[in-house]
Every structure is written in C-alpha cells, then in structure tokens.
Design a protein around this nucleic acid. Sequence first.
DNA 1: AAGACGAAAGTGGTTGA
DNA 2: TCAACAACTTTCGTCTT
Length: 303
Amino acid sequence: MRKSTKECPDCASRNLYNNTEKGELACRDCGLIIEERMIDFSQEWRDFEDDGRSKRRTGAPTTQTSYDQGLGTEIGTTSDYYKLGKDKDKFFRLRKWQYRISTAIERNLKVALAELKRVSSFLKLPHQVEEEAARIYRQAVQKGLVRGRSMESVVAGALYAACRRHEVPRTLDEMGEASGIEKKEIGRTYRFITRELKISIRPSNPSDYIPRFASALKLSPETQSKSVKILEMARDVELTSGRGPTGIAAAALYVASLIHGEKRTQREVADVAGVTEVTIRNRYKELIQRLDLTEEVEKHKKR
DNA sequence: AAGACGAAAGTGGTTGA
DNA sequence: TCAACAACTTTCGTCTT
C-alpha cells in the first residue's frame, strides 16, 4: 500500500504512515489513526468466504440494535460531533470512514465485551476467566459463529466455557440469570462454540461446586472437606458418571452437613445448588447405601 | 407446621437405528 | 430424522419430627 493513494480524512494530508506491525494506518500530520487492525480486516474476509454463506457481515438483529448503541460512544452521535471537531464536513467524512473502516467484527466485539464484562462481574468471576471468555468470544466472531445467534447468547456461552475450563463452574441457571439468556440456549451455544473452536473441556467435577455451595450455606470447612471426600468415594464406585454434577455435589453436601451436625434442609441445599429436593434425595439415597454411610449418618442424627 | 420421602407424569437432551 | 431412553423436574400425597 502506497501512502499517496489515500489522504487523511481529517486534515486531507497525504503524509500517511503505514505501521504494518500494529496494523495501523496513521496520519503523520494530525496523528489520526485512519485504519486500525488491518490484519483482522483481511482475515475476516477470508473467514467469511470460507464458510460459503452470505456476505452479510453483521450478526443477529439484536446485535444490530446493540451495535447502534455501541456506536453511539464512538462516531455518530451529536455528542461525538463536538468531540471530533467543529467542522460538520469533517464529522461526516469521519463517520463515513468509521463506517468503512470498522468491520462488523470490531463493532460487534466492542458491544460484546461490554456485555461480557457486565455478566462476569455479576457472577463475580475471576479476571482470568473473563479474559479467557473474551478470547473465546473473539475466536467465535472471527469464525463467523455468531451469525444466526444472538450476541448475548454467544457471550454467555463463551463465559460458561471459560468457567468450565478454569474449573470455577457456574451452573447454567446462574449464567442464565446473569445474562438474561435462557439456559438451554446457553447450553446449545456453548456446545456449538466449543465444538467449532475445538475447545476441549473436561467433564465438570462435582467438587468444583462444593466451595461455592458450602459458603452459600455457611457450612464449616470441615463439612466442606468431608463432602469432597464423599465425592471422591462416590467417584470410585462410579456413582458420579452420567449424573448431573450439581445434584451429586448437593447430595454430598447434604450428607456431610448431617454427619457434622450442621444440618441443612434438603430445600436449602437444593436452592443453592439449583436442583430439586427430589434429585438430592435420589443422589443421597445412592450415596449412603453405596458408600455405607448409613450408620455414620444415623449416629450423628441422634445428637 | 415443616421437613423428608417417594410415586407418577412431564420435559429436554442424547443416542442409536 | 425419529423413536427410545436416562436424568431431572414438577406435583402431590403421606409419613415423621
């Protein structure tokens, strides 16, 4: 790209500087970054052609509406008009450039990352997880996986996947509450993007849920570690496979709370674990008979 | 009255033909 | 693609504390 082929939309200078390393095209005179992320720009086209579908480069309708709001913080509102200069022509030129330059990906990402931040702070997720989720989301967008899905659901799916990878799982229910997306939709998106991006995720371990549930129930550390032991034993006799990890975790906590004389009702445990009492009962029944915990529980019940 | 228990019917997802 | 299937839920009646 020769620098004389373009002129700066801001000051009309032809003295442009192409920084290939950063993927930027900048004006030497006024410092305006005319194009950025030019590498992404080209990559995007390749990806979109690969999947052989329409040339439509935006996401679902909801993305469109969000995008308009997102653009409001950039160029396109009257408030920005004043920030960018007094000259009306300049404003329109800039907006045109902005429109040409910024790809759907960039716009989408801006909004999506804000949403991601919101949800992750709602769930009090560690920074690492948030970063991971952002990375996953970015990949998903670049592969064109957002098309046909709402941006929010992909954000939720990416977050859920990141949680699982970092072994700080949140339930789909919690994710649903935080993101406002139905949990089955999140699950679907989650499976889809992990498959498409080849993100391998180990089946979630029930004991990953223990610390959170235990603290929500205000159970002692002893009870907590007891329930982890119960889970280990349960795993050894293959009680854990094929069942929902939250149900098992809940049941283990319930048993542990009985044994340590810190009894919580099935309902209490069920609520924090997001399962029903019935499920806890079923798991509980299996646990105490397969692990010979009956006497241990009875013994402590007496007190 | 509240909690625990279990039966029965329904739901959504996975799997295998 | 569809039907069978397992896990889980909802609902409800009964028993226990």
